[in-house]
Amino acid sequence: MSPGQPGAPPREKGGRQRPLLLRGAQGLVTILEWSGKLIAVATLGVMFGALLVNVVLRYAFGTGIPWAYEIHAVLLPWLVAGGIVIAAARSRNIAISLLPDLTPARYQRFLLLAVEIAIVTIAASVLWSSQPILRASSFQTLSTLGIKQVWGYSSLVYAFGGMVVIGAMNILQLLGGIDRPGPDPARTSLS
């Protein structure tokens, strides 16, 4: 839980001028990471405020805010989605890094490429298959807040769409000869 370190910038071999496309790819990842940060901090702040006020009201005055127990139904999915996008942008998802550690350096890029392709495929198939659920959730309304459930479910579209885009950008960078930083246990584990 060391305080947030920014993801190490991708290294480049040989110090050539980076092509525009690859700079654009990194830029897009950075923008997504910032959107994740803003969403996450906002939702965390609102939930903290609502629950704290509710606890104080309940213990001090015996009343409460009815929606304090329902607000998480919409905001927690967005906090998680924001966190998932930040983690994806910084390559900080929990993985078993045994094989990359054993792979000779010159083959590592192929392994990383395979992993990124798998991530993009999986995220895209989840995104594609979620449509019936999104449609169904547009009929449901939270009882005290009066908000449609689809506002919460759409966080899945953001999270998995973000993962597809970040994965695609990583593939671009790998094909363009830029090494992504290798896994570092202090940054990738959450035990």
């Binding site: 839980m1 947030g4 906090l79 924001g82 966190g83």
Partner: peptide
């Protein structure tokens, strides 16, 4: 908060 969000997300 950002670090918390990332850990929560993961």
């Amino acid at each position: 908060a950002v670090n918390t969000a990332m850990m929560t997300g993961a």
